[in-house]
Write a protein that binds this DNA or RNA. Sequence first.
RNA 1: GGGCGCAUAGCUCAGUUGGUUAGAGCGCCUCCCUUACAAGGAGGAGGUCGGCGGUUCGAGCCCGUCUGCGCCCACCA
Length: 845
Amino acid sequence: MTWNVPENPALEGLEAKWSARWKADDTYAYHLAPRADTFSIDTPPPTVSGALHVGHVFSYTHTDTVARFQRMRGKHVLYPMGWDDNGLPTERRVQNYYGVRCDPTLAYAPDFVPPDKPDAKHPVSVSRRNFIELCLKLTSIDEQTFEDLWRTIGLSVDWSRLYSTISPQAQTVAQRAFLRNAARGEAYMSEAPTLWDVTFQTAVAQAELEDRNYAGFYHRIAFHKPDGSPIYIETTRPELIPSVCALIAHPDDERYKPLFGTTVTSPLFGTEIPVLAHPKAEPDKGAGIAMCCTFGDLTDVTWWRELSLPTRTIVQRDGRLARETPDWLPNSAPYAEMAGKTPFSAREAIVGMLRESGDLDGEPTPTMRKANFYDKGDKPLEIVASRQWYITNGGRDEALRARLIERGEELQWVPDYMRHRYTNWVEGLNGDWLISRQRFFGVPFPVWYRLDGDGQPDYDNPIFASEQALPVDPMAETPPGFDEAERGRPGGFTADPDVMDTWATSSLSPLIVCGWESDPELFAAAFPMDLDPHAHEIIRTWLFSRVVRSHLEFDCLPWHTAAISGFVVDRISHEKWSKSKGNAIVPDEILAKFGSDAVRWRAAMARPGTDSPFDETQMKVGRRLAMKLLNASKFVLGLGGPQPPSAVTEPVDAAMLDALKGVVAAATQAFEAFEYTTALEVTEAFFWTFCDDYLELVKERAYGTRGAGGGASAQAALQQALSIQLRLFAPFLPFVTEEVWSWWQSPTQGSIHLASWPSLGEFEGDGDGSMLDGVGAALERLRGVKSEAKASMKTALSAVAISAPADTLEQLKSVEADLKAVANITGDIAWSSSDELTVTAHVDL
RNA sequence: GGGCGCAUAGCUCAGUUGGUUAGAGCGCCUCCCUUACAAGGAGGAGGUCGGCGGUUCGAGCCCGUCUGCGCCCACCA
């Protein structure tokens, strides 16, 4: 039998060739199996409206190596993929891409066509339904691009299980879970001060906050005591003076103690406000006394709540100051200068007035302050009072918080220290999870409200959809017992207009992919899942939110193990990549330049949890390895036909296999602990030695030049070693290993990725792996002699003398013929015993 | 301010429960077209393991402390 070994093997084209084959053959399909035989992975659904960068490629490759290992070990691997396509990022992309804006008051236009030349500054208004149609259209395009990339890098996902967070299936899960949360009191509606993005005009959750530096000015401003004398505060937001409710200092602050319980008046407006004490006031900050407004920051909310202060809101949901003059201002005239302005303009106006009135002490001094931003927004968040849906997450319930912290302890973390980020986050929660968004492209709340005789909604008694009716769009469907004609009429009903935050859906990904309430057999086989893999930045969001949902619904963790990837960081600064810095690298170019196996190799060299600098020069090392595999395989398979393992008779051949046995044990152990890097390292280290030393050593004998028996022994050992090494490399280099496998094994055995992971039971005989160390050292010395003489490696050596410790000496003598062949030694070798290995020889130039 | 991590060769990183002379790859230098491989191969140079103190017969590793860097969280008057 001959093998189909190409004359000039190449890496080019392997991605296209094999990804197409795997797709056609459903190589990675999950087939239902008992729980113990299933390995289920909760793949993070990437946001399709964003661009994938090299960091994503690395992180997803880490998961793929584990998936492939488990599959080869005989597990049925449930490795799904999802697209996170609902939510604000998609809306924003659609607005820019098509030049449209959603106006929910408009009627649906069935024939609407987006403008040829989108003008983001003058967007076309479209109905909610038209807008959602455009979102679906664009996401389907984006998703194809994502799938192409994942197939190119060789992710072994079961594409038949693809889901998206806007799909009816995901909407059903999200609405059902919400209904159950609501029925148990875990989801509730509340009117409260809410972090608010003025650009997108929606509430945002604590987990989506990001603090950024924000340039501002300290203004030292006088309030007035009853006797007219000034008391100074410092603020960066003087435009909020109309909404001031109190001045607050620390209870122990001697400077202000005499003022507690008295009132002062605000500058310009003359509002009478109390001076109060609260421990959260910090004496060494600013003037030591703070002006509490509704609302400037989260501390204001605390004071407002705990000190029962009045609500004096002036910043509206569009981010501008109220156009109507507030009714609580005794002297309302100055407000006219600020009405309807942005905070920035209002600030300029009031500073001018304060300067004129003499209440501004000195000039404003520049400062860099931190401000809260929505992670997708570019204006600082405001705080407005609004009615929103929340899910309990321990933020206001110590018992639940303690239980959720315990969940984090239960979870196996790889690496272990990542658990601290979870604990840190849960301990720092300051409120429940706000899940409603005042947006359009998302999962609607399956809720309606009765309207009273005045047309006012009855929020205390929401009408919930039934689980059988899901998914439901309350804007298009009517609640049980009502008629569409009653929508919006007094005595009728109205739909909840909001959608759920995208995390409220993606927090249910284990339920979506495991067929919760829709495929009980699958659910029993796959849940709780085995592996939760992702990078560390979404521990506080995705990881935590899934723990919350699973804890509330099932009283268990959604998976046993969380494997956390690090980031790919900037090569020079070692800082993380970010959109604003624009330093992220797109994967397409390097994939084209080095090939998927090379990029995967580099990814696998980044250990769990560890950030790694992006360095393109590293990629070529992976490429060289892939190329070496092709060439070494070509050599081994070109020597002759199949040899049975029993043909291995030479001690050095058995020794090589014994050393490889140790590699299999080490790689397996590493993979079981999700330490894919170690598995790769031990495999690769062996492979290079295998090529440089063993393969060179036995080359002549393998040709059969010194007899059939010795030749067969070498060939059998080489073939077995190749088979095992290909399988050890398969999780990392799926393309090149599949290519080589196809030359000899797959015609009868199928894909290498469905072959079995090497086991210790495959090894026959008993060699002594340590023998290779002595042989390698001797080879190095022999080459060194030639290298020092600046001679070619094929130059002959004569008068060779080798001395070595006794046991090494015996080993070397047993491979004398091989040594003489590889080093081109003429005459006999003079052996002698000594403590240290030494080699002398004459170079026959 | 709280937490986590890192600091070993010019660069990127290994270094098992403390045990001879601290390793690998890249880069660099020298050599070699050798019938698997020149997008290759061989050989070599290069490190007082961030500083200080301690434990120990012995510390890159353990303890304390300081410095620098990165990340997470909090604060943002």
